[in-house]
Amino acid sequence: QVVDAIKDLVQDCNFDCNDSGIALQAMDNSHVALVAMHLKTEGFSQYRCDRNIALGVNLASLQKVLRAAQNEDLLTLKAEDAPDVLSLVFENSENDRISEYDIKLMDIDQEHLGIPDTEYGATVTLPSAEFQRICRDLMLISESVGIEATKEGIKFSCAGDIGSGAVTLRQNANVDKPELSTTIELQEPVALTFSLKYLVNFCKATGLSSTVTLSLSNEVPLLIEYKMEHGFVRFYLAPKIGD
C-alpha cells in the first residue's frame, strides 16, 4: 500500500534501513513535491539491521514483484551487506507455498533535504476520504486550489474556465466515530495556493489511514501526513506564489 501510494510521485529511491526501521525521502522530478516515509521496527514481526544500509530501488520494479503476493501472505525482505539485490519472500499462512523473488538494486545518488521543525499557523485533521473527494472534485474545475484556514473553518476554493467552486469544512467532533471528526488548530489565519495535480496524487495514500492532517503556514510548503500505527507517510508540497 505504501509503494502504491508513492510510486507515481517518485520513480527511483533509497530505502534507508537502520535500527529505527525503514525510511525514505525523495522529491519528484520537478522538485515541487517530496515524500518522506518511515516504517518503524515495531511494525515488523521481526526486524534485524546490523549496519545502516541504503537499498536503491526502482519502485515500478518493486511494484511488479509485490503484485505476485497474495493479500494475506507473510512478506520477508532481505538484503546482504553491499547488496546487488533485494530478496522478497511471500509465504501463505498455511506455509505450503513459498514464492521467492529478487529485484536488482541500483546506486541512487539522492539529495537529502533538511526539513526544519515548523510551528504551523494551522493544523487541520479531517477524514482522508473527504479530503480525496474534495481534491478530485475541484480538479475537474481548476488546476489550482486556494486553501484558507480561519476561525470559521477551512475553505478549499478554485476557479476555472467553466466556473468556480468552494468547499468549507467547519470544526466538528464526532464522539462515536472520531475518525470522522474535523479538527482545526489555528495559531493565525493562513491562505495559500497549491497545484491540485499533486494533491490528487498524494491522495493515493488514502487507504493508509482514515484521517489525514494538513499543516499550513503562509509561504511555506504544505505538510500532509497519513499516520499509520507504526509509521507515517508525509508529503510536502511547495506553494504557488504571487497570484
Binding site: M27, H31, H112, L113, G114, T193, S195, P221, A238, K240
Partner: peptide
C-alpha cells in the same frame, strides 16, 4: 497568474 515554487527554495540539502 502565479508561479509554482520549488522545495529547494525552502529546504536545504544536508
Amino acid at each position: 497568474t502565479s508561479t509554482q515554487a520549488r522545495l529547494n527554495d525552502f529546504f536545504k540539502p544536508i
